[in-house]
Design a protein around this nucleic acid. Structure first.
Lengths: 127, 127
DNA sequence: ATAGTACTTAGAGTCAGCTCTAAGTCAATA
DNA sequence: TATTGACTTAGAGCTGACTCTAAGTACTAT
């Protein structure tokens, strides 16, 4: 698979994929005799994984570290687990922030609806 | 309330608060005779609101727009509602991304636990 | 064989969102 | 009165995560 095919498949720019490889977020991608990347299943799996993690906001630096541990083999299982647990904590925190904000947005949207329907003519405006 | 008090209260740096005011994320803060900011309840309310929205990832530009509409009065209620609904959509999408990533992290953490306990000695490693 | 297209690299540029610096004002304390 | 410390400003600098540029190579189609 060429980079442009992978780019379409995962909806990432070729630049981003090259950047991820350069930074070590994904292991080195195999090349053909001309030095052109030829993505196999393994490479695609990594890209899919990184895309998922990035979509939730995990940092490049963290993912780089994870890949690095991964490549050092089973001896790093414990460390990897710790890293993933840390990231889970962060995501749980983020989830709560989003939940709180969604509650607030819902409340405000409802209020605005009431104003539009004329139910709340003298709404005291607050942020 | 001085900027440093507000800074402590909301755990934001004074620089960030000044930046928010300069950018128009919060309405102009009242000043004393020496030009020093004296935050009232209104200002604090805005800061709290912006902090909540930012914690969920709403963009500066979007919040700036919201504040601008807000300051134009009740004529902009409809537009404000549309803006907030858009942001709610974005947050719901983000929530899903995080949920998917959390599922994946939980699965991997569990696998790593099994390896540690010796249940899974020949774990085929994949990202 | 010439043009077009897809790839390659190193490195520069961009953007959001702060964060810091420098130079200055003012009020309170030693 | 001198200094300390909290504030002020404009604007420069930083970080993370891309995104783009320039210059070059290789295969394909006319």
């Amino acid at each position: 698979m060429t980079i442009s095919e992978v780019s379409k498949k995962y909806n990432l720019t070729a630049d981003t994929i090259r950047y991820y490889e350069k930074e070590g977020l994904i292991p080195k991608v195999p090349r053909d005799k001309n030095g052109i990347r030829d993505f196999d299943e393994g490479s695609c799996g990594w890209i899919e994984f990184i895309k998922c993690m990035r979509s939730a906001g995990l940092e490049i630096e963290t993912l780089k570290q994870y890949v690095s541990l991964f490549r050092q083999g089973t001896a790093t299982v414990k460390e990897r687990k710790i890293l993933l647990i840390e990231q889970r904590e962060k995501l749980l925190k983020k989830q709560e922030d989003i939940k709180a904000t969604l509650d607030r947005l819902n409340y405000k949207i409802e209020k605005y609806e009431e104003i539009e329907k004329g139910k709340l003519k003298d709404f005291t405006e607050k942020p």
